[in-house]
């Protein structure tokens, strides 16, 4: 590989920049306030009526800081991808707002919205479906620039070559078609394309889970190196808790469309506080056979977001459930600096 992804750790190791450890707080790049996305459940074809709502995302608030990574973890269907789509303007929020550099993007003018679009790019899970199979790699990587910038062809070509080399590929790769690459290489191409507009934020929806184990570390390290180089923020969606620990500065744990716990990464992993987070941690696979894990296997399945349970949404599966849990909705409590939990235990 030709990137800076050598085997020696970079001089400024990312972990020394974990929140709470450095003096100057990074600025907030993007903020979600009480974000909701409800999908109507309809009956009838031409004249349809709404019979219910799938509350895919139901009141999310979080912040993403410049140059940092926010991780969102949770089980399938908890609303992670829907959240990502709202940030990418692929879905319109039902309620709530997204503030980009302090501006509500849904209230601002078309010029600012265009600016926002350019600043927020994405890399998705499936490296086989995220590149148009009928376009040459150089055209794929150039496409965002062709759409948004009026650059001379020569400059675009140089930039494409720079991006290819940034993600560890060669200039001649630009002339090939996506199917001529392996999964890991295709993910590199997707990253190069996402970087082409110098975005401020890249949404990474399960970027490594479709890759071979020996390739995952390559891509994770590449993403970390690029973050240093470009000072870009990431929103990382993943269900693999160890990956999130490695990649993120902040973590939000989602359950049924809501954030149940939100904390700096080390705090969350060393002091998981919400019962659901604890259950996730105990269900996650250990990295060594001698590690004793707390036995806390959840029974049952995630209820349908069509009829989420009343009170605390986790109460039907919670081992610590109390009487009030099925009635009162828990409020968000800050149990230590930056560590937010919504559970009646706190």
């Amino acid at each position: 590989m030709t990137t800076s992804a050598g085997q020696t750790p970079p001089s400024s190791s990312p972990s020394s920049e974990r929140p709470g450890q450095n003096g100057s707080e990074p600025t907030v790049l993007l903020e979600a306030r009480d974000l909701k996305k409800w999908f109507p459940v309809t009956k009838g074809v031409l004249i349809s009526r709404t019979t219910g709502w799938i509350k895919a995302v139901d009141g999310l608030s979080f912040q993403i800081r410049t140059g940092e990574t926010l991780g969102i973890v949770g089980e399938s269907g908890c609303g992670k991808s829907t959240t990502a789509k709202m940030l990418l303007m692929l879905e319109e929020p039902t309620e709530g707002s997204i503030l980009y550099q302090g501006q509500d993007i849904h209230l601002s003018g078309p010029e600012q919205r265009r600016e926002y679009r350019k600043s927020v790019q994405a890399v998705f899970q499936d490296p086989w479906s995220s590149l148009n199979p009928r376009m040459r790699v150089k055209d794929l990587i150039a496409e965002p620039m062709v759409i948004n910038w009026s650059l001379p062809r020569q400059e675009i070509r140089e930039r494409v070559e720079k991006l290819l080399s940034d993600v560890g590929l060669m200039a001649y790769h630009g002339n090939l078609y996506p199917h001529e690459f392996s999964g890991g290489q295709r993910q590199r191409l997707a990253i190069a394309r996402a970087l082409s507009l110098n975005p401020k934020l890249i949404v990474l929806d399960e970027p490594v889970s479709a890759l071979d184990v020996s390739i995952r570390a390559q891509i994770m390290n590449l993403l970390k190196d690029l973050q240093q180089e470009y000072n870009v923020s990431y929103l990382l969606i993943a269900h693999h808790l160890a990956t999130v620990r490695y990649m993120c500065d902040w973590v939000a744990v989602m359950y049924l469309g809501q954030i149940v716990e939100y904390a700096p990464v080390r705090e969350l992993y060393e002091n998981p506080s919400h019962p659901y987070t604890k259950a996730l941690m105990s269900a996650a696979l250990p990295s060594h056979p001698d590690i004793e894990q707390e036995e806390m296997i959840l029974t049952g399945e995630v209820p349908s977001p069509l009829n989420p349970p009343a009170g605390c949404r986790f109460h039907p599966r919670c081992p610590f459930v109390m009487d009030r849990c099925s009635v009162d909705i828990p409020v968000v409590t800050e149990i230590s600096p930056g560590h937010h939990v919504s559970c009646h235990l706190y």
């Binding site: 190791s13 184990v213 020996s214 570390a217 992993y269 250990p286 990295s287």
Partner: peptide, 16 residues
């Protein structure tokens, strides 16, 4: 090359 759940890893080894 696999990240660990129980501890911070500075940099994963990556198999080229």
């Amino acid at each position: 090359s696999v990240p660990k759940l129980e501890e911070d890893v500075d940099r994963l080894y990556s198999i080229e």
